[in-house]
Amino acid sequence: MSIQEIQDEIVEEFSVYDDWMDKYNYLIELGKEMPPIDPMYRTEKYLIDGCTSRVWIHADLDQEGKMIITADSDAIITKGIVALLIRVLSGHTPEEIKDTELTFIDKIGLKENLSPTRANGLFSMIHQIRMYALAYYTKQQSAKKD
């Protein structure tokens, strides 16, 4: 599935919830279910420090040249949103990720969680994912030339 298709799928899933509480309960569930990040990445080096909640993130390339993103947060609602972001982006090529527009956050009514404040680290997390993508993309391009 393409990034856009996954985004559409999430929007579809959320359309059954008309109450914020159902949405949050779903996010809490997603947060609880998300596999924890490898402890070696739950360190200062991979930390995106928000004013309130913290996010750890790491991205690697698999053998097919796709980006595998793992992440974690100390706040469960943040973690739920992180899980959604990973579902949308992880497993795609750096090229796809670096140019992608994340439209689903707004559509499922979680925009306030992504305001460019330092509050929860999510805004910086997306920025960090794009940086990873750009770095891996550049690396792939120069490998092709060699």
Binding site: G50, S53, A75, I77, T78, N120
Partner: peptide, 21 residues
Amino acid sequence: IHHYDTGMILDKLGIAVRTGH
């Protein structure tokens, strides 16, 4: 329970509190 989660849920209930350090 994380202070951020508490603050987010209270916000949806119309209650403004501060969370964090």
